[in-house]
Simulated scan of single mutants.
Amino acid sequence: RKLSTEHYHLFVEVIFKKKQKLMDQVNITLYVDGNFPKKYIQPIIKSMNSCAVKNQLHPDITFNTSVVYPEK
């Protein structure tokens, strides 16, 4: 699609279960610039959700994926 990723940032936040060293939730956020086409938001989220590593983790772990535009 020839989309530049120069100003994109991927942020991963891991939340652990209380009093345990087990992952409970993972939030994956892709921060894009204002030029990112809105028509690609759902396809990129679908791609993020089909990550091979993510799919190998325990099914009880909750994943949240999102794409965020800069605030104006």
Rank of each mutant, 00 (worst) to 15 (best):
residue 33 D to S: 08
residue 38 K to C: 00
residue 27 N to S: 09
residue 59 P to G: 07
residue 26 V to L: 14
residue 59 P to C: 10
residue 2 K to V: 08
residue 33 D to M: 02
residue 3 L to K: 09
residue 70 P to L: 01
residue 36 F to S: 07
residue 1 R to D: 11
residue 48 M to V: 05
residue 30 L to C: 07
residue 58 H to K: 15
residue 60 D to S: 15
residue 41 I to A: 03
residue 24 D to E: 15
residue 19 K to T: 05
residue 42 Q to D: 13
residue 37 P to K: 14
residue 13 E to R: 06
residue 38 K to H: 00
residue 37 P to L: 11
residue 26 V to N: 07
residue 28 I to F: 00
residue 56 Q to M: 14
residue 13 E to F: 07
residue 26 V to T: 10
residue 12 V to G: 02
residue 64 N to K: 08
residue 63 F to I: 03
residue 44 I to C: 02
residue 33 D to N: 08
residue 13 E to P: 06
residue 5 T to M: 15
residue 11 F to A: 09
residue 36 F to G: 00
residue 42 Q to P: 05
residue 34 G to S: 12
residue 61 I to H: 09
residue 41 I to M: 00
residue 71 E to D: 13
residue 16 F to W: 14
residue 49 N to C: 15
residue 38 K to I: 04
residue 38 K to E: 10
residue 9 H to T: 09
residue 68 V to H: 03
residue 20 Q to Y: 11
residue 25 Q to A: 08
residue 6 E to P: 00
residue 72 K to P: 13
residue 55 N to T: 08
residue 19 K to I: 01
residue 53 V to I: 14
residue 30 L to V: 12
residue 50 S to T: 13
residue 2 K to D: 13
residue 9 H to V: 07
residue 13 E to C: 06
residue 5 T to D: 11
residue 13 E to I: 04
residue 16 F to S: 15
residue 8 Y to H: 11
residue 71 E to P: 07
residue 30 L to M: 14
residue 3 L to P: 02
residue 8 Y to I: 02
residue 12 V to K: 08
residue 68 V to P: 03
residue 35 N to R: 08
residue 55 N to R: 14
residue 25 Q to N: 06
residue 32 V to N: 03
residue 12 V to H: 06
residue 72 K to R: 15
residue 37 P to G: 02
residue 36 F to Q: 02
residue 16 F to N: 15
residue 47 S to I: 10
residue 57 L to I: 09
residue 51 C to P: 06
residue 15 I to A: 13
residue 48 M to Y: 02
residue 42 Q to E: 14
residue 33 D to T: 06
residue 5 T to P: 00
residue 51 C to A: 05
residue 67 V to L: 01
residue 25 Q to Y: 08
residue 50 S to M: 12
residue 68 V to I: 11
residue 51 C to L: 06
residue 40 Y to N: 03
residue 46 K to M: 04
residue 24 D to N: 15
residue 39 K to Q: 12
residue 25 Q to P: 01
residue 61 I to D: 12
residue 36 F to P: 00
residue 6 E to N: 08
residue 7 H to Q: 07
residue 5 T to C: 09
residue 19 K to R: 13
residue 31 Y to A: 01
residue 64 N to W: 06
residue 23 M to R: 04
residue 68 V to F: 04
residue 51 C to R: 10
residue 65 T to S: 07
residue 28 I to H: 04
residue 24 D to A: 11
residue 24 D to Y: 09
residue 11 F to R: 15
residue 51 C to K: 10
residue 50 S to C: 08
residue 28 I to E: 04
residue 33 D to P: 05
residue 65 T to Q: 08
residue 42 Q to F: 00
residue 10 L to Y: 04
residue 47 S to R: 07
residue 33 D to G: 02
residue 11 F to T: 11
residue 34 G to C: 04
residue 3 L to E: 15
residue 36 F to E: 03
residue 15 I to M: 15
residue 45 I to S: 00
residue 8 Y to W: 14
residue 7 H to L: 04
residue 33 D to F: 03
residue 60 D to V: 10
residue 46 K to Q: 11
residue 57 L to Y: 03
residue 29 T to K: 10
residue 66 S to T: 02
residue 65 T to Y: 01
residue 2 K to H: 11
residue 61 I to S: 12
residue 64 N to G: 00
residue 70 P to I: 01
residue 14 V to H: 10
residue 17 K to Y: 07
residue 53 V to W: 12
